[in-house]
Amino acid sequence: MPTHQINPNKWIELYSDYLFNYTITRVNDREIAKDIIQDTFFAGLKSMKNFKGEASERTWLISILKRKIIDYYRKINSNKGQAEVRMTYNNAEDNEGDWLEERAEDEGYLNAQEALENTELGDAIYDCMDKLTAKQAAVFKMKTILNYETEAICNELNITPSNLWVIIHRARTAMAECMEKNWL
C-alpha cells in the first residue's frame, strides 16, 4: 500500500540542496551539478505516474539522480575515449618513461577514501538538516554553508540580527544533538 505522496511543488524547497550536494560531491562542477539536478527534476515530472509511493519522494528522486550522474560520466567517458584514440606517443628515446608519469595514479584517487567519508558525512548533515524547521534550515544554510554576512541574511529574510542568532542557536543545538546520535 503506498505510504508516500508526490508533490513536485515542494521539490525545490525540500530536496534541491540535498540533491545538489549529492551531485557536486560526485561531479565537482557547480554548473554541471545544477544541470544534472534540473534534468533530474524534469525526468521526475515525466515519470511521476510511475511513483508507487513505496519509497520516500527523496529516495525516488535520488534513484533518478544516480542514473543522471551515470549518464553524465558515460557521456564524458565516451568523449575521453575519442580523445585517447587521437593521442599519439612518439617513440623517441628521450621521451622514454613519459607515458608512465602520465598514467600514474593521481592524488585524487589516493584520497578516494577520504572523499567517500566526506560524502557520507555530508549526507548525515543533510539528514539532520531535514529535521529543522524550514526557517531554521534556511538561516543555517545561508550562514553556515553559504557563509553569508549576518546583515545580508537579515535583509533577505526580513529578520533582526537578534532574531537570527536565536534561530542559529536553536538550529545548532538541534543539529549537534542529531549529529551526536548519527555521526559524531
Binding site: D17, F20, N118, L121, I125, W183, L184
Partner: peptide
C-alpha cells in the same frame, strides 16, 4: 559540541544552492 559540529561541517565541504 558546537565546535565539533563546526569541524564536521568544515570537513564535509558541504555545498548548497544560493538563493
Amino acid at each position: 559540541r558546537n565546535t565539533k559540529l563546526t569541524e564536521a561541517i568544515k570537513t564535509s565541504k558541504l555545498d548548497c544552492l544560493s538563493h
